[in-house]
Amino acid sequence: MQTTVSLTSPLSRPPHTLVTVAWIGVRELKDAIGTRWFTLYTLAFAALGLGVSFVSASGSGGSGLSGFGRTSAGLINLVLLVVPLMALSAGAASIASDRERGMLAYLLAQPVTPVELLLGKFVGLAVALLACILLGLGLCAMVVGFKGGALNASSIAWLAGLSFLLALGMLGTGMLISVVTRRASVATGTAVFIWLVLVFGTDLALMAGTLTFRLRIEELFALSLINPLQVFKMWSLHAIDSTLDVLGPAALYAVEEHGESLHAIFGLCLSAWILAPLTLACVLFSRKGVS
């Protein structure tokens, strides 16, 4: 038990921004790990991933052949479904639920700026999401490893890294939603809506566009870069065994035309998806304050 004499520093000097952000992050991380959504999502992610790995490992009949196959496709698909939902809802809940509980004003009455609070929460939730991704994909990797599946170590590392980037982007978007909505339920609803749009809406719309407007392949590729999920998917395929060309003519065009710079292009797109919503959230939040 701590019974030391308190060491208080002169209060005219509040802690450095980084320190404040770190402490809020630690608090948020601990909170997040304790919550139901984190446990549920982690379990769901791990369970689905294990399912995918088991099924595809047995599907190859234990032949031990390696290559891009259903395991990677299944895992990418899983990440596309689960990670954005998880990150969006975590982000959406972060500020809005505090506001609803009346905690936001109390937190901001401390020597903490709104931007620090926002970034701290972002960092904490990001680490929680990282833990979730590592656990889920790690278990999958163990199954793939022991059962002799179709993924090598670097593919899994890439997949985990890119999933994390996607999670960051979606987390930032979620926090933006959280900042602009007043009630937690509205924020969560909006997050789910955005998720639906990103997961199904944009792709289906683009497919319809391809069929009806006869989009040229370069237009199709450029348009597909708008959706962070597509970017994640293409980047994963490009990074894992560089088999982006699996995706047909538009992807083949991308490989032929952009080749080496594809990593940079995808990286830029995802970075924009991380930075833009987060920056906007910071600006709005510090302008808007508690009200």
Binding site: G64, S66, L130, A131, C132, I133, L134, L135, G136, L137, G138, L139, C140, A141, M142, V143, V144, G145, F146, K147, G148, G149, L151, N152, A153, I156, A157, A160
Partner: peptide, 17 residues
């Protein structure tokens, strides 16, 4: 059939998580 490395990576990742 490279699997030991993948399994080890998986173990490390889960461990980190």
């Amino acid at each position: 059939s490279v699997s030991a490395g993948v399994a080890a990576l998986g173990l490390a990742m889960s461990g980190a998580g």
